[in-house]
Amino acid sequence: MLLEQERRDVCLTARNLVSAVGSAPGESTTVSVRSGDLVVVTPHGVAPDQLQPADCPVMSLDDRVLEGRHDPAAEATLHMAVHRQAAEHGRDATAVVNAFTTDTVAVSSVLAELPPVHHRAAALGGAITVTPYTTYGTGEIADQAAKALKGRDAALLANHGGVALGHGLEHALENLRLLDWLCAAYLRARQIGEPRVLSEDELALVRQRGTYGWAGPDIF
């Protein structure tokens, strides 16, 4: 079986994703991981808690399905576009996750950009782009997602949800959880008033501070 370990890892991540951030009923999460020129993606029509490694399709970067008991999930088109872009630009991002959580859908339905209201936003690249609305599972939403993820580790898809990438499945899941948390924090802040937004200079200092341990540059 092609990429057996990667298929097992995709199954586990899909289950962890649902338990970590929740999602809409039905097929509302997609997980993929790339190994060289091959990509494992979650299949269409199989619930995360029922996934088996053999269910997961293995695809080539030119969108050919090489193996798997089921067809790829509808959002495989989006995932493949992101993987191709990462490979072409030499990024170390090998995993992509997307989910329709309550907070990512809410923010993506209202804002054109999620502003950085907490220093942890720096880990995703700062302000998070919200793509224009397009129909899910199409080449158009795939192109918009790939564009929004240039220089970023997460994006919001208008009226749709969130997508994140990482240098492995665990990292991609962590980034999706962070995106969901930032959306929730912003929504909570808006209930009180207009949130304070961190500037690019402040985010740059956060990134610089992140290179140190407890003994930061100004501790003495």
Rank of each mutant, 00 (worst) to 15 (best):
M1H: 10
L3K: 08
E4S: 14
Q5R: 15
E6M: 02
E6V: 03
R8F: 12
V10T: 04
R15M: 13
V18I: 13
V18C: 07
V21W: 00
V21M: 05
G22I: 07
S23T: 15
G26H: 04
E27M: 11
E27S: 13
S28F: 05
S28K: 06
V33Q: 06
V33L: 12
V33H: 05
R34A: 13
S35N: 13
G36L: 12
G36H: 07
V40C: 07
H44G: 12
P48A: 14
D49V: 04
Q50G: 01
Q50H: 06
L51G: 10
A54L: 08
D55A: 05
C56P: 09
P57W: 04
V58T: 15
R64D: 12
G68I: 00
R69L: 00
E75Y: 04
T77N: 08
M80Q: 09
A81I: 06
V82H: 04
R84G: 02
Q85C: 02
A86W: 07
A87S: 00
A87R: 09
R91W: 03
D92N: 15
D92W: 06
T94A: 15
V97R: 08
V97E: 10
V97C: 15
A99W: 02
F100L: 11
F100G: 10
T101N: 02
D103G: 03
D103L: 00
T104V: 15
T104I: 12
S108D: 07
S109V: 01
L111T: 01
E113I: 03
E113H: 01
P115F: 03
P115H: 01
V117T: 13
A127L: 07
T129Y: 04
V130R: 03
V130H: 01
T131Q: 11
P132Y: 04
T138W: 03
E140S: 15
I141P: 09
D143G: 14
Q144V: 12
A145Q: 06
A146K: 09
L149H: 08
K150F: 04
R152S: 02
A154V: 04
A155F: 00
L156G: 10
L157P: 03
L157M: 14
L157K: 08
A158S: 12
H160T: 11
A164Q: 04
L165D: 02
L165K: 02
G166L: 06
H167T: 15
G168H: 01
L169Q: 08
L169S: 03
E170A: 15
H171G: 10
A172M: 01
E174Q: 11
L176H: 15
L176P: 13
R177I: 13
L179W: 02
L182T: 00
C183V: 06
Y186M: 07
L187A: 13
R188K: 07
R188Q: 07
R190C: 11
R190F: 11
R190G: 05
Q191S: 14
E194D: 00
E194W: 00
E194S: 05
R196V: 05
S199H: 10
S199Q: 05
D201Q: 09
D201C: 01
E202F: 04
V206H: 02
R207H: 09
R207A: 14
Q208F: 01
Q208K: 08
R209K: 02
G210V: 01
T211R: 14
A215R: 07
P217Q: 11
P217V: 04
D218H: 03
F220G: 13
F220R: 10
